[in-house]
Design a protein around this nucleic acid. Structure first.
Length: 268
DNA sequence: CTGGGGATGGGGCCC
DNA sequence: TGGGCCCCATCCCCA
């Protein structure tokens, strides 16, 4: 089992990840996400969310409809404020020209055609512009559908872990995080499981005694480069981590934190 | 209590 | 997109 510090703790609030920056959009993880992992660690279906077995990624949103626009974007673009309309863009900036990416031009045209057919105002010039890709639509519903299906989902999606509350902005990051739950890398010697192969490699060194990282200043050697780096601090007259109040230096941040928590800085 | 070593997790970068 | 690697951070334990 992973140790309790799987959940990061932070001495300094300023270093705490601002999870509020992550949008509240969530994505249902498809089961094929786990296919690369060995059988014993494949999560059971019930651990996935309700829509997990749809091969189609489902996007949901809890964000307010009129969410603040990103910096640098015109407030006139995107969802029109108060359902107001934006001026039609120059002819060179219409969606008929822009079919970048993997988006199919046909599907996009169908999208717009359908919005025209379903909205009596569609006869008018295209006046609703996506603030993300500049595509224009003649109806608000057309724009809304476009954003729901493509741009909003693409630009603001987040991937939520079903094992915990963490969210990630990319599927790769989420996959890597999920490994911390599934622990697919198992030591053949002791059975201890790890999230990544190189972690397992480092662990195996604890069995073999291999210490490939030698200190150039003494005869000590280490199995882990990070530990050598920390050790090198002990050879330094001026340590890397300094107390802001008493100027005492420490080889490790944890030691500095201990020093600060012991009361050096509380009276200042 | 302090300093240091050992072990491990996570994000980011590169290929 | 995934794997390997680096770097940083953190916890546990011991002298």
């Amino acid at each position: 089992m992973p140790r309790s510090f799987l959940v990061k703790k932070h001495f300094n609030a300023s270093k705490k990840p601002n999870y509020s920056e992550l949008d509240t959009h969530t994505v249902i993880i498809s089961p094929y996400l786990y296919e690369s992992y060995p059988m014993p660690v494949i999560p059971q279906p019930e651990i996935l969310s309700s829509g997990a077995y749809s091969p189609i990624t489902v996007w949901t949103t809890t964000a307010p409809f009129h969410s603040p626009l990103p910096n640098g974007l015109s407030p006139l673009s995107g969802y029109p404020s108060s359902l107001g309309r934006v001026s039609p863009p120059p002819p060179s900036d219409t969606s008929s020209k822009d079919h970048s990416g993997s988006e199919s031009p046909i599907s996009d045209e169908e999208e717009r055609l359908q919005s025209k057919l379903s909205d009596p105002h569609a006869i008018e010039a295209e006046k609703f512009q996506c603030n993300l890709c500049s595509k224009t639509y003649s109806t608000f519903s057309g724009l809304a559908k476009h954003k729901q299906l493509h741009c909003d989902a693409q630009s603001r999606k987040s991937f939520s872990c079903k094992y915990c509350d963490k969210e990630y902005v990319s599927l790769g990051a989420l996959k890597m995080h999920i490994r911390t739950h599934t622990l697919p890398c198992v030591c053949k010697i002791c059975g201890k499981a790890f999230s990544r192969p190189w972690l397992l490699q480092g662990h195996i060194r604890t069995h073999t005694g291999e210490k490939p990282f030698s200190c150039p200043h003494c005869n000590r050697a280490f199995a882990d480069r990070s530990n050598l780096r920390a050790h090198l601090q002990t050879h330094s007259d001026v340590k890397k981590y300094q107390c802001k109040n008493c100027s005492k230096t420490f080889s490790r941040m944890s030691l500095l934190h201990k020093h600060e928590e012991s009361g050096c800085c509380v009276a200042h």
